[in-house]
Amino acid sequence: MSKKPKVNPLTAAWHNLRRSPFQSFAAVTIMWLNFLVATSLVVLFFVFNSLLGYLESRPEVTAFLKDQTSQTEINRFKEQLESLDGVKEVRLVSKEDALKIYREQNKDNPLLLEMVNASILPASLEVSATSSDYLVGIADILKNETDLIEEVIFREDVVKNIGFWVKTVRNGGLVLVGLLSFVSLVVIMVIIGMKISAHREEINALRSLGATSFYIQKPFLFEGIFYGLMGAIFGFGIVFGAYFYWQEEIRNFLDPIPVLSISDRIIPIIFSIELVSGLFLGLTAAWLATRRFLKK
């Protein structure tokens, strides 16, 4: 007896894919784009969240001192600040210290180091608070010392901005991913619908044999699942491939801020969620397309 006859729905689905490769490619591409955007937004969300967490854990106000401020005045003011409620630490960054920091940050860019010396960089007081609740009060005290203080940089603005971007990325991202998912669903419905039309005679033959709707639908459902899974795998693979490839470089550049620190336990969870989403999206599109045809 020769080889076993192929009636497997998976084989039929594979056959469908091969028969119209450009349509299959279009379907996988739209899904892949969808998941590329979704995964990128997920990573961005984690990045902003990490940054926010970092900033919130280090509530800080920086006060730049006027050039003519004497060391005695600085010391006196520093002691005054250290005695306030909510102040954790007060660090004096002298002009020389500022120059060292500047040179370290820009060591790879010699153009930025030319013409810069300690005299043009201001000294500053970096005030750390025990909680971000105290930052407003500390910032007000610093702003009132107009004789000594040139400028006050208050991280709450930065924290508020980052918080705003986290919400924007999350909410805007959900809307964008929702829209892209809808577009993917429609495109795959159309593509599978076209394939069903091309198989109309075959489907009618199966119906005349007494095949159930599910029997007829099966190969197309598998095809939809394939598009969804491939899209999820490619989208995730590209984004996290880039993430892992550039992770060390970006970490070193932004050290000590831990922006690219998505936990190793979270990444498989993200992948699993995307796989399930892809499967669901592809399956739903295929089911809707076949249902439309079988109802006629």
Partner: peptide
């Protein structure tokens, strides 16, 4: 009304499976 992309044997097998 035979299935064009299946062999004779496979056509019969589909009927049996259904």
């Amino acid at each position: 009304r035979l299935l064009a992309n299946k062999t004779v044997k496979e056509n019969i097998t589909v009927a049996l499976e259904v």
